[in-house]
């Protein structure tokens, strides 16, 4: 596999710094190197103080969300050379408190998200014709949302309205409406039926564009609006 050198311009900030700055590193990459692997190489070989979040390395945990060349991505599935830029700029997510370097505080994200009470396991829609094994109640899988926060970082409305519930929580509420699994739906619909809820969305759809996990938050927000209208008109099935 051929190798080449790529320059990384990395956002840096430590608690107590008066302002953030950028550091530049040169990393040798090949056709398969991901942005996450390049950042790990920087931390291992050049600067052991670089703070990054990562865990699963296959777009399943959602921890390595960051902005690469200005766009929200998961670093673990972002190929360096496919970016096609001689310099790769890496910055933390927006609309979240900065902790250090490329890491933001996910506390506020989860404060809102957890209020959707989205169960972690759902019915699987895959292989619908397959029989279910003896002793297994139904085919199940984890929810698609990996709680990475890319949608919240990319959302222009979150940037301007700190009280906006944001695309991740709203999308989660829609999933509960679709498949309640014992969760009470009416209080959740009341929660999102507000000026800082699903009606606040400008339909910029940046959220669906950056979502790495097929959630389509923008589409879910539109579905929530339709559901609220249906219920207001007394057309709801429940």
């Amino acid at each position: 596999m051929s190798e080449q050198k790529v320059t990384f311009r990395v956002f840096r900030y430590k608690q107590g710094d008066t302002a953030p700055h950028y550091d530049t590193f040169t990393v040798t990459v090949n056709e398969r190197t991901t942005v996450l692997e390049a950042l790990q190489a920087i931390r291992r070989d050049q600067d052991g103080t670089l703070v990054i979040r990562h865990s699963c390395h296959h777009a399943s945990c959602g921890t390595c969300g960051m902005r690469v060349n200005g766009k929200e991505v998961l670093a673990c599935v972002t190929n360096v050379l496919e970016l096609g830029t001689p310099t790769v700029t890496v910055e933390p997510l927006q609309n979240a408190p900065l902790i250090s370097d490329l890491v933001v505080d996910m506390g506020p994200f989860y404060e809102t998200f957890s209020q959707a009470h989205l169960p972690f396991v759902r019915r699987s829609e895959y292989l619908p014709d397959a029989e279910v094994a003896e002793g297994v109640p139904f085919h199940m899988r984890f929810e698609s949302c990996i709680e990475c926060g890319l949608c919240v970082s990319a959302c222009p409305v979150v940037a301007s309205d700190a009280e906006y519930l944001g695309p991740a929580a709203l999308a989660a509420v829609w999933r509960v409406v679709q498949e309640p699994r014992g969760t009470e739906v009416p209080p959740l619909l009341d929660w999102v039926n507000s000026e800082h809820g699903c009606w606040r969305c400008h339909v910029a759809l940046e959220c669906s564009e950056v979502c790495p996990s097929n959630v389509d938050p923008g589409g879910n927000i539109m579905a929530l609006r339709q559901e609220l209208v249906r219920r207001a008109l007394g057309l709801s099935h429940g």
């Binding site: 990054i52 990562h54 865990s55």
Partner: peptide, 10 residues
């Protein structure tokens, strides 16, 4: 690093 960033998460 972040919790579970070594072996566990992978």
């Amino acid at each position: 690093g972040e919790v579970t960033s070594g072996t566990t998460g992978r």
